[in-house]
Amino acid sequence: MVNERVNGKNIVITGASGGIGAEIARLCAASGANLVLLARSIDKLQQLESELEQKYQINVEVFQLDVANTDQVKQVFEQIFASVGDVDILVNNAGFGVFREAHEARIDEIKGMFEVNVVGLMACTSMVLPKMRARRYGHIINIASQAGKIATPKSSVYSASKHAVLGYTNSLRMELDGFNIGVTSVNPGPIATNFFTIADEKGTYVKNVQKFMLKPEYVAQKVVSSMLTKTREINLPRWMNMGSVVYVLFPRLFERIGKRVLNKK
Rank of each mutant, 00 (worst) to 15 (best):
N3Y: 11
T14A: 05
T14I: 07
G18I: 01
E23N: 06
I24A: 15
A25Y: 00
L27F: 03
L37H: 14
L38Y: 15
A39C: 11
R40Y: 02
S41Y: 01
I42L: 06
K44V: 07
L45H: 11
L45R: 10
Q47H: 06
Q47M: 14
S50G: 05
L52H: 13
E53C: 05
Y56D: 09
Q57F: 10
I58W: 12
E61K: 14
L65H: 11
V67H: 06
V67D: 08
A68W: 12
A68M: 11
N69R: 08
D71V: 13
Q72I: 03
V73Y: 08
V87Y: 02
I89T: 14
N92D: 04
N93G: 06
F96G: 02
G97D: 04
R100P: 11
R106G: 01
I107T: 15
D108Q: 08
G112N: 06
M113C: 06
E115S: 08
E115H: 12
V116M: 07
V118H: 13
V118R: 10
V119C: 13
A123T: 11
A123Y: 06
M127G: 01
M127H: 11
K131W: 08
G138S: 13
H139L: 14
I140N: 13
A144Q: 12
S145A: 07
Q146V: 03
Q146Y: 01
T152V: 07
K154I: 00
S156K: 00
V157F: 00
Y158R: 06
S159Q: 01
V165G: 03
L166I: 14
L166M: 10
G167T: 02
Y168T: 07
S171R: 04
R173H: 05
G178P: 00
G182E: 06
V183M: 13
S185T: 05
P190R: 00
T197V: 07
D200G: 14
E201S: 10
K202T: 10
G203N: 01
T204F: 12
K211V: 08
K211Y: 03
K215E: 08
K215L: 08
E217T: 04
V219R: 04
V219M: 05
A220H: 14
Q221Y: 00
K222E: 14
S225A: 15
M227P: 08
R232F: 06
E233T: 03
E233C: 09
I234K: 10
P237Q: 12
M240F: 11
N241P: 07
N241T: 05
N241Y: 10
V245T: 14
V245M: 09
V248E: 15
L249D: 13
R252E: 08
R252D: 11
F254P: 01
R260C: 01
V261N: 06
L262N: 05
N263R: 12
K265H: 02
